[in-house]
Amino acid sequence: MNTSVLRIGIAGITGRVGRLLMEEITSRDNAVLSGGTSLSKDIHDIPDSVQIFSDIASLVEKSDVIIDFTNATATETHAKALNNSKTAWILGTTGISESVQKLIKETAKTIPIVQAANFSPGVTLITRLAFELAKALPADQYDAEIVETHHRQKVDAPSGTALAIGESIAKARKVDLGSVAEIGRKGFTGARKKDAIGFSSLRGGQIVGEHSAIFLSDVEEIVLTHKAFDRRIFAKGAVRSAFWCINKPAGLYDMNHVLGLDPVK
């Protein structure tokens, strides 16, 4: 593979992050935008020189890497198109079902995939810090709550990033998140379970993304907070991941690998 000029394709090029990805890629001397896919007909500000493909398979053939921030309903199709290809996959789509996640893992046996709920370096570090806090602070003494806020157009809740932080806390406490998560409490819930990990989701305005992991005991409160002011941070992280994964062996990677950090165990 010629890595002197990296051919990067964008799945969902007309989306909010897709347009930022286009700017990031075209601003680099060592990358070329191989094209994009879009379900939207709103391509008025996409340069005529950018090829829009009607299907992902055609874009895969023209690309060394695909960056994908599309809807979870498209992920299965994308995984099948990328499987056994020579094209790496940077996947930032959230809300993916368990069955499709299994397909992603199978695809990672044939190509390198960098999958992250959030491509911000800051969020990656916040998630690691949440793990360390959860590992050090006993669950029967420190309640863990996660609060996330996003723009009104976001379609999934809790956010993928909030769930990733929750998974990190659950991993540190050696429990299954699905068995301890309390999402959107309502009505007469009874006293809080000592091992619960709570999630609250707020939606409004055009907030890019805010996440807080909160640990509360009888005598103190510890809050880890990350606020994204510009979606460009996600585009920058994804493009960084695209360059990182070239010539890596097939496998499923995350932002810890990209940042040169040991995976959380």
Score class of each variant (00 low, 15 high):
residue 132 E to C: 01
residue 114 V to C: 07
residue 117 A to N: 11
residue 83 N to Y: 15
residue 109 K to P: 11
residue 122 G to C: 03
residue 101 Q to T: 12
residue 108 A to L: 10
residue 86 K to S: 12
residue 135 K to E: 06
residue 128 R to M: 04
residue 112 P to T: 06
residue 90 I to P: 12
residue 112 P to L: 04
residue 113 I to W: 11
residue 155 V to Q: 08
residue 150 H to K: 09
residue 103 L to M: 09
residue 151 H to F: 11
residue 120 S to P: 14
residue 131 F to H: 15
residue 133 L to P: 08
residue 136 A to V: 07
residue 120 S to T: 00
residue 142 Y to E: 00
residue 115 Q to R: 15
residue 106 E to M: 05
residue 151 H to W: 08
residue 151 H to K: 15
residue 119 F to A: 05
residue 82 L to V: 09
residue 127 T to A: 00
residue 87 T to G: 07
residue 124 T to G: 01
residue 127 T to N: 01
residue 142 Y to V: 03
residue 153 Q to V: 05
residue 94 T to P: 01
residue 111 I to D: 07
residue 148 E to L: 01
residue 133 L to I: 02
residue 87 T to S: 10
residue 132 E to K: 08
residue 141 Q to P: 07
residue 89 W to Y: 03
residue 152 R to A: 12
residue 129 L to S: 02
residue 154 K to N: 04
residue 142 Y to G: 05
residue 113 I to V: 15
residue 110 T to I: 03
residue 86 K to W: 12
residue 112 P to G: 12
residue 82 L to N: 09
residue 83 N to K: 14
residue 146 I to A: 02
residue 94 T to N: 04
residue 90 I to A: 01
residue 98 E to A: 10
residue 97 S to Q: 11
residue 85 S to T: 08
residue 128 R to C: 00
residue 103 L to K: 02
residue 125 L to M: 03
residue 150 H to Q: 07
residue 124 T to P: 00
residue 90 I to R: 04
residue 140 D to N: 13
residue 105 K to Y: 12
residue 135 K to V: 04
residue 134 A to H: 08
residue 122 G to S: 12
residue 124 T to R: 02
residue 88 A to R: 14
residue 118 N to H: 08
residue 111 I to H: 01
residue 123 V to K: 07
residue 90 I to L: 03
residue 152 R to P: 02
residue 147 V to R: 11
residue 132 E to L: 07
residue 148 E to V: 06
residue 143 D to E: 04
residue 123 V to W: 05
residue 138 P to L: 00
residue 84 N to P: 05
residue 154 K to A: 12
residue 130 A to V: 00
residue 104 I to S: 00
residue 145 E to S: 15
residue 143 D to L: 05
residue 131 F to W: 15
residue 152 R to S: 03
residue 147 V to W: 07
residue 104 I to E: 04
residue 113 I to M: 08
residue 131 F to Q: 07
residue 138 P to S: 02
residue 111 I to C: 06
